[in-house]
Structure formats: C-alpha cells, structure tokens
Design a protein around this nucleic acid. Structure first.
Lengths: 235, 235
DNA sequence: AGCCCCAATATTGGATACAATCAAGCATGA
DNA sequence: TCATGCTTGATTGTATCCAATATTGGGGCT
C-alpha cells in the first residue's frame, strides 16, 4: 500500500534490504559501495545514504574505513530480538483483537489454510525424499507473513507496524526458516500455534490472543537459538 | 561508556539529534544541509548521511527535493509511540527484575530521591511565583532519565535498549515535560508512580514491576495527548 | 485589488574528483 | 624460518561540481 520510497535512496535501501533478506548477500558478507553502485546503475553517493539507513535500522554493520557487512546474529542477539518481537506482536494482536474486521479475519484464515496445506505437502514430500527442504517453502514464508501482517495492520498503530517490520528485516529468510523446517513436528507445532491465535482473535479476545502470539514467537525464537547453537554457523 | 559514534557521520547524527531534543531545532523546522554543514564545519556529504540515519530512526522527515524537517507529532502519533514505549519498558523492567543488582537499585533510589526533591522545590517555587516553569527542570529530566536508564540497562537486552533509546529520541525534551510540569498534582503523581516501580523491583517482582511501569508510561502518554489537544500546538 | 504565469533564486539530488585509510603481499634481515 | 617494515592496490570518506527541482517574487492581465 503505502510506498515508503521517497525517491532513489529509499528504494535502494529497500532493494538492498530485500536482497539481504533473500540471502543474496549472506550475513557477514561485505557490501562494497562500488559494486552496489554498478549493480543499481547509480553512483556511490545514494548507495552510501541507503547504507546509512540500513545501518540505523540494524540491518547492516558499519566498520569505519572498512565498509559495511551484513549483520550476523549470534544466539544472544536472536534471543534479544525475539523477546522484543514477541512483546511487540503481542501488543499488536491485543490491540487488533478489538478492532479487527471480519474481512481481516477471513484473510488470516486464508493465509492459515495455505500455510497448513503447504506444510502437509512438504511433510508428504519428505516422506519420499527426506532431503526436500526449501523448494516449496517460499509460499510458506509468504502465507506466514500474510498472517502476521494482517495482525500488525489491524493493530492500527503505525509506529508499532514500522518497528516490527524493521525488526523482521534484520534477519534473513533462511535463518528464520532453518529451525522451523527441520522436521514435521516443528512445522505442525507452528500450524497449531497459528490455529490457537486465530481462534482467540476470531472471538476478539485480546488476552488469550496475546498469550498465544507471544508464546508462538518466543517458541520460534527458542527453536532458532537452539538450532543455531547446534549447527554452529550463522546464516 | 559505549561510544556508538563510528566516526564523523555517527557523531554528527548524535549532535544534530541532541540539538533537536534540546529544542534548538523545533518540530516542523527545516534542516538545511548547507547550514548544518557550516555549523559543524564539514561538507554537505556527511550531513546528508547523518540526516538519512535520523530519518530511518524517525527523528526527522524527509520530503523529496524539499529537504528534511524535524518531525512533528500529532496526538495519534504520540498515542502510538507511548503504547509501544509502555510495552517495551514493561518488558525491560520485567527482565530487569530478575537480575538487577543492589547497586543498581541504589542508583534508582538515588535518582528517585533527586527527582522528588526537585519536584518539591519546583512546587514550592511556584507557590510564590506560579509562572516558574522550566528553570529547575533540567535536573528533573536528568534524574528521570537516570531512573529509566538503570532499568533498561539492567534488562540485559541490547536490542531493547537501542529501540527504547531511539523511541525516546524521537520526541523533544520540551514536549515530554509540557504535560507533566503543568501542575503539582501531576508531578507528585509521577513521583508516586516511580515509588511504586521502585518498590516492586526492589523485591524483584517482575509482574508488579511491569504493571507499575506500563501504567506509569501509559498515564504519561495520556496526559501528553490530553495536554496536546488542549494546547493545540506542537512542540 | 486579485490572480496567474514566468523568471530568478535557493536548495536538494547525484556524479565525480580527490584525499585518507586499511589490507595484503613482498622483500629484507636476524 | 619467522618476524618486521615498507610499498602498493583497493576501498572508504569528504569535498566539490553540475543538474534537477521547488520556492519566491515581480510583472502583467482581467
């Protein structure tokens, strides 16, 4: 809906951010100004400004005289971020519970349906080939985002919306998926959690909706940290 | 302690931000790149980058081809921000309640003491001259900040700390004071709220501490909105 | 007088030029 | 062989230049 991009710099920041999120520039990798400038067919000047914005949002780190790198997250950092995210989305849904429309609830149901179907498919696919991983998953990510976005939208709090979005952008798609696509149990757990959220908000219950949402997010964070410490690497 | 300023741009952003907070550039006023460049004795380039950071943090607004203005807040915006801030500081104190040290609690007590003394003085001064307003108040702001900063620090969550700080910077000192320094009752109410927070955290009670904190902040926000709609103007 | 259009001016936006800094690699010598 | 210091190339940081755009003020027309 709302285009945040004022002009060049804003859209550059978005496009770079999207590429980071998509994993094209993985965490820890350097972002060379000249390379980006060439890629987007502009000079270094607007690139630098875009990078400053991403720095302020915590998407990248900026070492003096050494340039920017995609921010890599350690376990502690992820724990911190998920604590905050759980809190913010918890607030969002408790606000949303009061004002959410039937149409919005229907949208959530739609996203949830798609979500659950994709999970079933993925589990089925794995039964024959256990290595099936990220192939069909993009649509999962999408419907998951849809689900959460409706809530954030329905909260009616612009500031909150912006902050959650920024927080979200700080992590890569792969990182957020990694822990959750591990096995069928995790995925079904996720579906069930969404179900609980949906049920609570459908009856406009702010307290239960919030509980369900914070639990959902905290649990995701736990899994992520747990997975990260097991796998060692970043992403 | 921690210097966030990498080098020039970071420190410029901080210095500009401080001036905005202090009221030197009031909300709505334009920030001319050339003027800032001259003021800080640098070229426009690093100024522009600093402004982009402040834009990303929501301190200023950037109109294409018209430059930056200090962000002005309407009632709705303040309501949104205070809802979020109440939530975040609520989380902060509930985390802090577990790990806070006696030394930190002592620091909070110290700040609270100073806080209360200043309030008494201000009220006394007003008895003779009702127009006494912002003269002695800086030290109030300072001790208030100290109080809250201990909590944020003790939360042990870096991300949270950063977000609260950014949120805080988005408003000017005068705006935050305006509603609270209106009359003695408001000021004493504030002191009492701090007292309740202090009592709860001193006995390491995360639930009560959080309740007291969110109540304190939401109430401040309410007063601010109320005051703003009465006075009309921004600040 | 009031309104509109256009020119002059101020200001931002982007590209380029140049200086400062860092990293890597190589040669040198103990 | 390994440590050390220098040189060179790559990259960032800042300043300046030029183009694009918005604002302002004045003149003419109704």
């Amino acid at each position: 809906m709302a285009r945040t991009a004022d002009k060049l710099v804003g859209s550059l920041a978005e496009r770079i951010s999207e590429k980071i999120f998509a994993g094209e520039y993985p965490p820890g990798s350097p972002l060379r100004q000249e390379a980006l400038a060439e890629e987007f067919a502009v000079s270094r000047t607007p690139i630098r400004e875009a990078l400053r914005q991403l720095e302020a949002k915590g998407v990248i780190e900026h070492r003096p005289n050494q340039g920017a790198i995609v921010r890599a997250h350690d376990a502690r950092d992820i724990r911190d971020a998920y604590q905050v995210r759980a809190e913010l989305e918890g607030l969002a849904i408790s606000l949303a519970a009061e004002w959410i429309t039937d149409e919005q609830i229907a949208r959530m149901r739609g996203a949830q349906k798609k979500f659950s179907v994709v999970v079933d498919k993925l589990i089925a696919a794995r039964r024959s080939n256990p290595k099936t991983r990220l192939k069909d998953v993009p649509s999962w990510v999408e419907s998951n985002d849809d689900f959460h976005n409706v809530v954030i939208e329905a909260s009616g709090n612009q500031r909150l919306k912006q902050m959650i979005r920024d927080l979200h952008q700080g992590f890569t798609r792969n990182l957020m998926l990694s822990a959750l696509t591990m096995d069928g149990r995790r995925m079904r757990e996720n579906v069930a959690q969404h179900e609980a959220i949906l049920a609570a908000i459908a009856r406009h219950d702010p307290v239960e909706a919030r509980k369900a949402m914070t639990h959902h997010i905290l649990r995701s964070g736990e899994l992520l940290v747990w997975w990260l410490e097991r796998e060692g690497g970043l992403r």
